[in-house]
Structures are given as structure tokens and as C-alpha cells.
Design a protein around this nucleic acid. Structure first.
Length: 573
RNA sequence: UGGGCCGUCGCCAAGUUGGUUAAGGCACUGGAUUUUGAUUCCAGCAUACCAAGGUUCGAAUCCUUGCGGCCCAGCCA
């Protein structure tokens, strides 16, 4: 696999500067902060490799470096424990162990609360008793300033009492809210007295019913970072406008001696955009709940769970994140880049096997009935030490339907009537005829083999044929379910308007679903593929990379998923 | 139309305290090897940095003015 060198990017540059100036001493502390309200997707893989990768890379230079896994669970109505477990699994699948540095924002509720009281006491926060509609109405617009709330000038004492009553559960949801007192006329909307705490009488997956007020993201995130001693808090571009608020909270709290400087700094990078998929939580949920796919781990889904079942590898993702880099420009990565990365890794690591996906019978008419002999197939063309396996050859074989054309098109150099081709690892054969059914579908192909051309025997090299096809003897082959996966959507930008669309046309991304994203075949496989463990990955020669299905594959009923095809300069449709 | 950010080869992306010939990867093209139309190997691939002006001996890098794209008006994160 081509190992790309560690690429320089603006975040590394910043960290290098901080290290050079000893801003944070001997540490680079990052964090991966998922909200446990959904499954991780390809976009998270970028963030995971960035955050965990950075901490790991700087370990030699800054021995205290680490990356925390922090569950950002400040919204009790959306989060669940099942997601926590799934996320932890995904992170570890990608190769990062967060044992000992796994945290929860909800563990900081008490500290967060104390910080809020301190802000109130410093006259930097107040309890607003407007309802949500009134708040929205007075927030102003992008071009007009907002108006101060009539409750903005409550006394510190009154604010404190009210806030404590909020915590005590004296008020129903939505009646009061704690707001930062900043500037209702700020051009940055986030600074127009943002909400800090809302009342939510809801059961929290970890804190249970201990709380009925919960902190908002802007407040909880920066404080959590400071508590954990994060040095570089990396997030995506849409949070850029929140940075002044992030700095404001921390600055005030540092002034109030809650935190020591230097404070963590937020740095934004552009999120992953990939063609032919959707990466928004909302759309992913729609696909699952709308039954367009079979659950969160459906191999068609761009979730990490789906990727795993699909046969994608952590190393492939690692390669991918290295290749696409990190920057602040909105980019759109072609899906083929991801596929290429998986091929790249799998090419090196997957043993070769033979499978006939769409079998048609081939009879070697001059091969004695009841006889069979051994042929040898290497497990990997570039790793002789991986050994070889025996493939019995006999009179009746299965070959790929696509490898025979009764009426060949130009450029086709596989089996054709009267033509010659090599049975891979076996003999050169010459097609002598074929049977068709009433619909013209080929039902059987006949050929004669040349006994002097067996692979590996002296003289077998003397005759060259261009075509080379794979096969399986009918006696040996086992039937298997082969799930051929393809891209989930049939257009690069699902749901996006396309050239020529009527001005009033609204497209639905679900209409762009690729109906052929999964096709189930019954194919023939080598016996060793049946006994392989779930999640074993192989290259099916001349087809692509396949993985034994994580949940459905058994020796009795083998199931293989196609991860990605081989590159194909001929059959590209 | 307020604020923030971005615009370097088909796709990514270095370089942006101005200094000879604009890194690298992917894709692509050509050639070699090859019992996977795979892999591998070798070679090629931006007089050009959104545009137009300007400053300068010298600019992708500085200035000006435009153009294009993304984000923000949740008691979501």
C-alpha cells in the first residue's frame, strides 16, 4: 500500500507554533466529541483520524499528548446509551482505544452549573422569562440588530434565585432560560445573548433525573474542553461563528479564576463532502427509518457500521483521510477516491480466491469422465510465502457467464466459439460449441483442452493466449449468497437540482436512490471460503474484494459481500 | 443587502512574514512487466495561482475593486 507521507496542513502548522513557543507545555490534547444521538459516519472518520491521529503523532515531541473521547450529551431528549456503545466500538474499530480517557459532558453538569452561577454573580448572565417565540422575535435578523429582553436588567440576586429555582424544578419547560449578557446588537448572531441553560424535565441517559436544567452546546463545550485541559479543540467550519462565544465564556471564567490560562483554542476545518452519498444525520435517519436500507449497519450506508459490514477497512479510511488532507476550503471528494483507498489496502492484504458469480457450465469434452487432477493457485501473486492452494480440475466446470460470448464484440478476448483461452492455473482450452435455451441464453459451453499446456509444467509457457478465465470444478464448488453492493445513490449530489430542472422543481434525495445498490446472486465458491470466519476479506480474482458477512455468514450458508470491484479498464459501464 | 470564511491542474492540496524553473497525492495519458482486461514499474501531466487594475527590480504571496461559493436568525450539536 502506498504510504503517503504526513502531510503538512494548517492545523499542524498551528500546533507546531504552539509547541515552539511552549504555549501549552509538553502536550497536545485534542478530543473527539460525538453527540450520542446517532451512528458515526464517514465524516466522523475524518475527525477521528484527525484528532486521535494528531495526539498520536505529537506523542514523541510532546509526551503528554492525548485525545479524549468525549460524549457531548447535554440534550437529554435525543441521546441514548445504545449510541454510546456503538460509537465506542466504531472508534476502537478504527484503531483508537479511549480506555481511561473517555468522558461525558454530563459528568460536568455540577461544574457547569457552578460556572453559570458565577457568570450570574458577575452580572454576565441573566434569567430571561420570555418564551421561545418572543426570544426569536427580539433576536433581530442578519441585517437588523436585536432588542434587549425586558428581563435583561434583573438584579443579580433575583437572577440567582430564579436560576436556583430553575434547578430545583420549580418551573415547567420553556418558562425561563438562562442567557449570557453580551450584546443584542452584535453582528454575529451568536453573541446576541445566547441561551446557556434551558429547562427540560427529561430523563438523561446517564444523570437520570438528577437535573431538569441542561446546558447548551456553546456553554458546555468550551467549559468541558477547559476542564479536560484540551489544547486544540478541532471542529468543522460551521462553528467558526461560535468561536467568539467559545472564547468569551472561557475568558470570563478565567478572569473569575475558574480556569487557568492558557485556554483551549478552537480551530475549524472543512467537513467531509463525498459524492454519491449523504452524510447528514437527518438523511441517514430517514434512510433507516424509512426502510430504504436494512438498519444502521446496512453495507450500502456511509456509516462506519455499514462500512465495516461492507468490508471497508480502518487502514483504508486512514489512507483516505491522509489523501484528502485537511483545510478550510469546501471540498467535494469523489466517491472513487474512497474506493481506491480500500482497493489499495485490500490489494496488499487480501488473499486471492476464486468465485463464479454468475455460473454457466463448461464441459471439457476430451477430458475423461470421473477423472480429476490438482492445479495450484497462489494465495497472493506478490507474496509467494503466503502459499498456494489446490484446485481440482475435472471434466465439468463452472465458468463466468460474462467470460463467454457467442457473438463476440470487438476487443473481447475471453472465450468465443472456436477461440482459445487459458483456464487460469490450468490448461489452454478451445471452444468447440455451446447450447442455448429458447430465449437464446447460453446453458452450456463445450471445449477441448490441450494436455500439453498445464500451468506450471515445462512447455506450458510456449503457447500464449491473451484470454485467461477463472473456473471452479462442479464437484468442488459450493453455492454461496453473494451480495453485490454498489453506490447508494445514482447521482453525485443526491437531492440537488440538476441542469435543466424547472425553477420550481424541488428534488428529494430519496428519488436519487440507486435501485441496484444491492443485488443478490447465488454464486459458486471455493470450499475454503465457506469455512472462513465472518469478516474475512478476500479478493475474488478478476471480480473484486469481498468480505464474509459479519452477521449472516456461516459455513453452512456462506454469505459474501462485495466491498468494491477491481478496477476494470474493459468492462467499465 | 449584517457578520464570518473560502477560491492554486479533472479531484484534493502545499506554498500566502513577496525573490531563481508553482511541492505532493489521486485521477488521467503513454510505455514496460504480468496466467487477475488487476497489481507493479517507468514517463508525461498548471508560463499558471477566481478576475481586473495597482505597488515593486521582482507577487500565487502586498493594495484596490469586482466575481463566485459556503456558513449564521434552535430553549439542536
Amino acid at each position: 500500500m502506498t504510504e503517503s507521507p504526513i502531510a503538512s496542513h494548517f492545523i499542524r502548522t498551528r500546533i507546531d507554533e504552539d509547541c515552539a513557543q511552549q504555549t501549552y507545555g509538553d502536550k497536545v490534547v485534542t478530543r473527539f466529541p460525538p453527540e450520542p444521538n446517532g451512528f458515526l459516519h464517514f465524516g466522523h472518520a475524518k475527525s477521528i483520524f484527525l484528532n486521535f491521529g494528531l495526539a498520536r503523532d505529537y506523542l514523541a515531541q510532546c509526551p503528554q499528548s492525548i485525545c479524549n473521547l468525549r460524549f457531548d450529551d447535554t440534550n437529554p431528549t435525543k441521546e441514548e446509551t445504545e449510541y454510546v456503545d456503538a460509537i465506542r466500538e466504531d472508534v476502537s474499530w478504527l484503531g483508537f482505544d479511549a480506555t481511561g480517557h473517555e468522558f461525558y459532558a454530563s459528568d460536568y453538569f455540577e461544574q457547569l452549573y457552578r460556572c453559570a452561577e458565577l457568570l450570574i454573580q458577575a452580572d454576565l448572565a441573566y434569567v430571561d422569562s420570555q418564551d421561545a417565540d418572543a426570544m426569536r422575535a427580539t433576536r433581530g435578523t442578519l441585517t437588523e440588530p436585536g432588542r434587549n429582553s425586558p428581563f435583561r436588567n434583573r438584579s443579580i440576586t433575583e437572577n440567582l434565585v430564579l436560576f436556583r429555582q430553575m434547578r430545583a424544578g420549580d418551573f415547567p419547560d420553556g418558562t425561563h432560560i438562562l442567557r449570557a449578557k453580551i450584546d443584542m446588537a452584535a453582528p454575529n448572531m451568536n453573541l446576541r445573548d445566547p441561551a446557556i441553560y434551558r429547562i427540560r424535565h427529561a430523563h438523561h441517559h446517564r444523570s437520570g433525573d438528577a437535573w431538569c436544567i441542561y446546558p447548551m452546546y456553546d456553554f458546555a463545550h468550551c467549559v468541558s474542553d477547559a476542564i479536560e485541559g484540551i489544547t486544540h479543540s478541532l471542529c468543522t467550519l460551521e462553528f467558526m461563528d461560535h468561536r467568539p462565544l467559545y472564547d468569551w465564556f472561557l475568558d470570563q471564567l478565567a478572569t473569575l479564576d475558574v480556569f487557568q490560562r492558557p485556554l483551549p483554542q478552537q480551530i475549524e476545518f472543512s467537513r467531509l463532502n463525498l459524492t454519491y452519498v449523504v452524510l447528514s444525520k437527518r438523511k441517514l435517519i430517514q434512510l433507516v427509518t424509512g426502510q430504504h436500507v436494512h438498519g444502521w449497519d446496512d453495507p450500502r450506508l456511509p456509516t462506519l457500521k455499514g462500512a465495516r459490514r461492507r468490508g471497508f477497512t480502518p487502514e483504508g479510511f486512514r489512507l483516505f483521510t491522509d489523501r484528502i488532507g485537511v483545510s478550510k476550503s469546501d471540498s467535494l471528494i469523489d466517491y472513487s477516491v474512497l474506493e481506491d483507498c480500500m482497493r489499495d489496502h485490500l490489494n496488499d492484504t487480501a488473499e486471492r480466491r476464486v468465485a463464479v458469480l454468475d455460473p454457466v457450465k463448461l464441459v471439457l469434452t476430451n477430458y475423461p469422465e470421473g477423472q480429476s487432477e490438482e492445479c495450484y493457485a497462489p494465495n497472493h501473486p506478490h507474496h509467494a510465502d503466503w502459499g498456494k492452494r489446490v484446485m481440482p480440475l475435472a471434466r465439468e466446470l463452472w465458468i463466468e457467464r460474462d467470460d463467454f460470448m457467442p457473438e463476440p464484440v470487438k476487443g473481447f478476448f475471453r472465450l468465443v466459439p472456436g477461440g482459445e483461452v487459458r483456464l487460469r492455473y490450468g490448461y489452454i482450452i478451445k471452444c468447440t460449441g455451446f447450447d442455448q435455451d429458447a430465449e437464446g441464453r447460453v446453458t452450456c459451453v463445450y471445449a477441448e483442452y490441450d494436455p500439453d499446456t498445464k500451468s506450471g509444467t515445462p512447455g506450458s509457457e510456449s503457447r500464449k493466449v491473451k484470454g485467461n478465465i477463472h473456473w471452479l470444478s462442479c464437484d468442488q464448488a459450493l453455492a454461496a449468497e453473494i451480495r453485490l453492493y454498489d453506490r447508494l445513490f445514482s447521482v453525485p449530489a443526491p437531492g440537488a437540482r440538476r441542469e435543466g430542472d424547472a425553477p420550481d422543481l424541488d428534488r428529494d434525495f430519496l428519488d436519487d436512490l440507486n435501485p441496484n445498490a444491492m443485488q443478490i446472486h447465488t454464486g459458486m465458491i471455493e470450499p475454503s471460503l465457506a469455512t472462513a470466519a465472518p469478516e474475512s476479506r478476500f479478493q475474488f480474482e478478476r471480480h473484486g474484494y469481498f468480505v464474509a458477512d459479519q452477521v449472516d455468514h456461516t459455513a453452512e450458508r456462506p454469505v459474501y459481500n462485495r466491498t468494491v470491484t477491481l478496477r476494470d479498464s474493459w468492462g467499465k459501464k
